[in-house]
């Protein structure tokens, strides 16, 4: 599904990604771990087309199509979703109206009619229940005054609404207490199917107890330096990132 070949990316002329290769197949869950500053969030920004980052080399293919020249919204229309580490507050736009706009813009791009209001409401209700979200919450302004946990849960709610092909969850576990973490992980697991894929970006292995990855990659200094199964996460937790740093040197 996703194939990243030798990606180099920089921000303000500072090279952050130094040749990343990654292949994610439908039905798989990949975890990308690594110390702070390794380039984890840059990787998610580059896949989703954030214009603050410049891709200097390499290609990002989704189902055989090169995404490099596509705008963030075009990538989203092709089924790429990012759960933000720091979701942005947008006062004056309710969660519901935001989702209606997002879904209908995607449908418009695919040449479909707008989703009928009744269908939209039904979907909102169903997905809100999946993530244990109070209906009142949905009429509040997007992310405004939300707690850290509420923001993350709202991200996964949006993911459930948009049903992406490829979901990248960037530090979704940070700011979540254990109950919220369970709800979010349970939501992600229910949304998982043989046709979609999930990339988890995380600093700690805590989330991986709930969403079990098929592959774990360790990112360090802009490169994937180690790849393994879920046991690699445990090894990392035990030995710390210094183990990686030392083995790379």
């Amino acid at each position: 599904m996703l194939k990243i070949n030798n990606i180099h990316a920089s921000v303000e002329d500072k090279e952050i990604l130094k040749g990343i290769n990654l292949e994610v197949k439908a039905g798989e869950v990949h975890a990308i771990m690594g110390p702070n500053g390794a380039g984890k969030s840059t990787l998610s920004s580059v896949i989703t087309g954030n214009e603050a980052f410049e891709v200097t080399q390499g290609e990002i293919m989704l189902d055989g199509e090169d995404l490099s020249e596509l705008s963030p919204e075009e990538r989203a229309h092709k089924g790429v979703f990012l759960s933000f580490q720091y979701p942005v507050e947008i006062p004056g736009v309710s969660v519901t109206n935001f989702m209606k706009t997002a879904i209908n813009e995607s449908r418009k791009a695919q040449g479909l009619e707008e989703m009928p209001a009744s269908e939209m409401l039904k979907k909102i209700k169903e997905k809100a229940e999946l993530l244990d979200i109070d209906r009142k919450f949905l009429s509040r302004s997007l992310n405004e005054g939300f707690s850290g946990g509420e923001k993350k849960r709202n991200e996964i709610f949006q993911m459930a609404m948009l049903e992406p092909k490829l979901a990248i969850l960037d530090e979704t576990d940070s700011g979540l207490d254990i109950d919220a973490l369970r709800i979010v992980a349970n939501g992600v697991n229910k949304l998982k199917s043989k046709d979609n894929a999930v990339v988890l970006i995380t600093h700690y292995q805590r989330l991986l107890e709930y969403i079990v990855p098929d592959f774990v990659h360790v990112l360090y200094d802009g490169k994937i330096v180690k790849t393994g199964g879920k046991e690699l996460a445990l090894e990392l937790e035990e030995k710390g990132y210094d183990w990686i740093k030392n083995s790379v040197k």
């Binding site: 087309g49 919204e73 933000f84």
Partner: peptide
């Protein structure tokens, strides 16, 4: 810019 990217990531054109 961050808010713009956030919305565009959800499929809302510029």
């Amino acid at each position: 810019d961050e808010a713009m990217f956030y919305m565009r990531q959800r499929g809302i054109p510029k």
